[in-house]
């Protein structure tokens, strides 16, 4: 396989045909290759159960908690192989994964949620200023910083989950379905903030979404994953124009059979 070195250098993350096994038998993803350029924003699109979340868990190492493991392929972060590194050490390297379903610490206040995520080595003054930065991004959280997080609204919890992840000082932020169950205006607000942080801080973002309409508005590239494989990879603009994508993921297009999308897995394999 021809690895183009000049090409991989400006990639903060590259997955090279990885396979994931659950419980040593169930093959959840079958040779996924994805690249995220430094400072870029990339989306993984696809339907339920396609393998998008599993791909993120392989990158963050959280597979371990679900008895899954990467059985083949390699994951490079910042040019370094990270397959054997513990999840907490990957966070220290600069990868943070906002897991699906928000999962804020219900019985802690938003303020404590943010504090829990600050690296151990971070000084008290820095923690304070970082928390202020999060409250500036998400003013709603500042209003409720002493409430019990379990009682925040869904949108506030998603903001808290993102703020909490940002406290770990990531260089790559991975978001799993941040728009799930949120009103469109909240999705726009949250995506707006992510875009702003991406521009201002150069934070690289890997976004998993079923809401392809919203996702393709903010990312530069997208990968379409079906049945544990990448079946399409293109710029956001081209994906938006693509008639199959329009039909199956953007809710437009007209009368095509779902089976026809499979020819992309042969025609448009990312690796070849």
């Amino acid at each position: 396989m021809a690895q183009n070195d000049s090409n991989t250098k400006d990639m903060i993350l590259s997955l090279n045909s990885i396979e994931v096994l659950y419980d040593s038998v169930l093959l959840a993803i079958k040779g996924v290759s994805v690249e995220v350029p430094r400072g870029g924003m990339v989306a993984l699109l696809g339907s339920n159960g396609a393998g998008k979340s599993t791909t993120l868990k392989a990158i963050s190492g959280l597979l371990k908690a679900e008895r899954g493991k990467v059985s083949r392929g390699e994951i490079k972060f910042d040019g370094k192989l990270i397959g054997d590194i513990l999840p907490q050490d990957r966070v220290a390297l600069g990868i943070c994964h906002v897991i699906e379903g928000r999962r804020v610490f219900d019985h802690l206040t938003p303020d404590e949620n943010l504090e829990a995520a600050a690296p151990i080595s971070m000084s008290r003054a820095k923690i304070k200023s970082e928390k202020e930065r999060m409250y500036e991004y998400f003013p709603r959280l500042a209003e409720r910083k002493s409430a019990q997080s379990g009682y925040l609204s869904g949108g506030e919890q998603q903001m808290l989950a993102i703020g909490r992840a940002l406290m770990t000082q990531p260089r790559l932020l991975m978001l799993d379905e941040p728009s799930l169950g949120l009103a469109p205006f909240l999705v726009a607000e949250i995506f707006g903030i992510i875009q702003r942080i991406n521009k201002e801080q150069g934070l690289s973002v890997l976004l998993v979404e079923q809401n392809a309409v919203a996702a393709l508005e903010i990312v530069s590239h997208g990968y379409l994953i079906e049945n544990g494989r990448v079946v399409m990879h293109d710029t956001a603009g081209a994906l938006k124009e693509n008639s199959d994508i329009q039909e199956f993921y953007l809710g437009g297009g007209e009368g095509k059979n779902f089976h026809e999308i499979k020819h992309y897995s042969r025609r448009k394999r990312w690796l070849s």
């Binding site: 963050s60 190492g61 959280l62 908690a65 999840p87 907490q88 966070v91 220290a92 943070c96 994964h97 906002v98 897991i99 999962r103 804020v104 610490f105 219900d106 019985h107 802690l108 829990a116 995520a117 690296p119 909490r164 992840a165 406290m167 770990t168």
Partner: peptide, 11 residues
Amino acid sequence: DDYLASWSIGI
């Protein structure tokens, strides 16, 4: 509160 969320932020 949440093992998985704790791992995800490096605890």
